[in-house]
Design a protein around this nucleic acid. Structure first.
Lengths: 160, 160
DNA sequence: CTTGGAATGTCAACAAGACTGACATAACAT
DNA sequence: ATGTTATGTCAGTCTTGTTGACATTCCAAG
């Protein structure tokens, strides 16, 4: 326990901060390269990811997950729907709600992006080894603020 | 070894991806709150951080670290210099180069931002425990692409 | 000494992606 | 019938990134 106080020097924390900064660039680079060619950006990728993860999700839930305004999401979603990557179906129980699904084409792009990003993640995980990965995941979860941690856990359970 | 193949299911990788996404939001939220009041953004924070880390660094090196164009950095740097947070000194050996230093005021803001972010990091590290942190750092380093990893290591050595 | 190239700064224009505010519509709930 | 919720949309703004063009300064090689 004395150790857990000792080892948290400012220098160690600073390295963690810089580590997050540099690693996040590596984390996004593979899908970014794919997105460069087509006329979509990271925002589109994020929307596709979470729609793929929880098909039939309504707009409000996606807004909460992404943490952006509805105007911001709507711009992205509109282009994806217009381009036939996402389908928006009126809710059955509540007709005000729109439920979001990937079309075949949307699934194809999401798979491409996802595979590139997973390949990058897989390589990092392999290099670091299973024990490091377990620790990595623990710290990531500890870094989230409570609401996002709940969303994260819900995705894990519901998205299987 | 069989284990290190087995445990990397797509679902595990997906959780790692979502973990990075959600954790990065937690990672930036504390300094973002401070920045809200004043007229600076994350780009200013990043510049201040790395100038504080390696005082006297020239512009080109900072460009490489941040991975943006000189025009983009210059806009940020100009406001910081105008506002008296950063000082730009002409190089001694090579007078084309500008070496960057924080002023007293710049140091004050950087310290404020840095302390907020370190507090957040410290809390996460404490929750996860020392072993998890070691693994976390290993995975982060494995996620960087080689050039950034070199920069990251150079900072660790030079910035003590 | 002249010339080429490197390091830096600056102007202009633009794009993505976030924001706020205001307003419209449809549908649920009371 | 009325208020609230879920969604969409229009208009305008901000930050942060981009490209392209050009000027200045200065080192270094001929």
């Amino acid at each position: 326990m004395g150790e857990s106080l000792l080892f948290l020097t400012d220098e160690q924390l600073r390295q963690g901060i810089e580590g997050m900064f540099f690693a996040y660039r590596g984390f996004t680079s593979a899908p970014d390269q794919i997105l460069e060619g087509i006329s979509y950006g990271r925002a589109h990728h994020r929307a596709l990811h979470f729609i793929a993860r929880s098909p039939g999700m309504n707009v409000n839930r996606l807004l909460t997950i992404l943490g952006v305004t509805k105007q911001s999401l709507n711009r992205v979603l509109r282009t994806l729907i217009e381009d036939g990557l996402v389908e928006s179906r009126v809710g059955v129980a509540d007709k005000r709600e729109r439920h979001l699904y990937l079309t075949e084409e949307g699934t194809a792009l999401e798979t491409r992006l996802s595979e590139a990003q997973r390949a990058q993640m897989r390589a990092a995980y392999r290099r670091a080894g299973p024990e490091a990965v377990a620790g990595f995941r623990q710290v990531l979860e500890a870094m989230m603020d409570p609401e996002l941690r709940r969303i994260y856990s819900a995705l894990r359970e519901g998205g299987a």
